[in-house]
Amino acid sequence: MSGPRVVVLAGGVGGAKFTLGVREALRRRDAPPATVVVNTGDDLWLSGVRLQPDIDSVTYALAGVNDTGRGWGRAGDSERVNAELQAWGAGWPWFTLGDLDLGTHLARTGWLREGSTPTQVLERMAGRWELGARLLPMTDAEVDTIVHVRDGDGERAMHFQEWWTRHRAGLEPIRFENPGIADAAPAPGVAEAIAAADVVLLAPSNPVVSIGPILAVPGVREALAAASAVVGVSPIIGGRVVRGMADVCLAAIGVETNTAAVAAHYGARASGGLLDAWVLAEEDASAADAVAAAGVHPIVAPLWMSDVAASAALAEAALAGA
């Protein structure tokens, strides 16, 4: 294999779809499998088990067992155990856990309690399927995302999953925090893979709560500075977010919901930011000049990841931009 060494920073459904495309694009180039650094900021403990939603979304997608209709969880899953938990008044009635998914969470929790690190757990999980990529958590530390929302004249805090799933981001966020992240370290292999990469790709994931926590882990930005090229893919198409409520998250940190603003949020490497190039949608081609003015090379390409072929074409455009 003689193709580029690629690292993807990813989270959520957009990250999972993009990772599928990267895997296909690298196979066509006879390149080594990508290393995928996955957000763990939305992890949580629930009913005594450790959930890692983004880790599972990427793993299930690469394994071909994900529920493509819902965008999360396992295909063909049932919810008998979830119904029983709710009958006992356990867990969150607005947070559904599928039975197959619970099997993953139980296995993970057991291994964690036996002393394995999240990195070791993910390696063990990945061994079940031929994923065609190396998956790493961003950190082995627990750095769950806490959202501070406006409450009358004050504020209150809640776990990101409650804000996102129960309230559908309907409560105005003031800020997002990852307690303990300042003392965290990249998971083993993360910084080394990023620094040695020929290309680092920022998936079209939520810039605030998916990519943001990865970048906040001490040492990650320094590793990115050593990478040969960093290319970001816009999560905005036609001035709108593709999925979820990323626009609410962006507004909370003072970033407009447009592709040039998100590119400026990441910043140009030439001026101390992250990006060498930015892939923006054909629908946003008029913003290419603004991206270029910010010191980032614009690449206009189709961004809709309707299937693996479309995701692979997007990955090819990003790799070519490097």
Rank of each mutant, 00 (worst) to 15 (best):
P173K: 01
P173Y: 05
I174K: 10
I174D: 09
I174R: 14
R175F: 08
R175I: 06
R175N: 05
R175G: 11
F176S: 01
E177Q: 14
E177F: 12
E177T: 15
E177V: 13
E177K: 05
E177M: 13
N178E: 11
N178H: 15
N178Q: 15
P179I: 11
P179S: 11
P179T: 12
P179C: 11
G180W: 09
G180K: 06
I181D: 06
I181K: 07
A182E: 15
D183A: 15
D183R: 15
A184R: 00
A184D: 03
A184N: 04
A184W: 00
A185N: 10
A185D: 12
P186M: 09
P186F: 08
P186I: 08
A187E: 03
A187M: 10
A187I: 05
A187T: 09
P188C: 06
P188E: 06
P188N: 11
G189E: 04
G189H: 03
G189A: 02
G189P: 01
V190M: 10
V190D: 05
V190R: 04
V190W: 02
V190F: 04
V190N: 05
A191Y: 00
A191S: 05
E192Y: 07
E192N: 11
E192P: 03
A193Y: 05
A193D: 04
A193Q: 01
A193P: 02
I194Q: 07
I194E: 06
I194K: 07
A195R: 12
A195V: 13
A195S: 15
A196F: 07
A196T: 12
A196M: 13
A197F: 10
A197S: 15
A197C: 14
D198S: 08
D198L: 08
D198R: 10
D198Q: 09
V199M: 10
V199Y: 03
V199N: 06
V200W: 08
V200M: 08
V200N: 06
V200A: 07
V200Y: 04
L201H: 10
L201V: 14
L201W: 09
L201N: 08
L202A: 10
A203Y: 06
A203Q: 09
A203F: 07
A203W: 00
P204R: 09
P204K: 09
P204D: 12
S205E: 07
S205D: 08
N206H: 12
N206F: 05
N206A: 07
P207I: 07
P207G: 10
P207H: 07
V208I: 14
V208D: 03
V208M: 04
V209D: 03
V209R: 04
V209C: 14
V209L: 13
S210D: 04
S210F: 02
S210Q: 05
I211T: 05
I211W: 02
I211D: 00
I211F: 02
I211P: 01
G212S: 00
G212W: 01
G212F: 00
P213E: 00
P213C: 06
P213S: 03
I214D: 04
L215M: 13
L215Q: 13
L215K: 11
A216W: 08
V217D: 02
V217E: 03
V217A: 01
V217I: 14
V217M: 03
P218W: 05
P218V: 14
P218G: 10
P218C: 11
G219Y: 01
G219L: 04
G219F: 02
V220W: 01
V220I: 15
V220A: 04
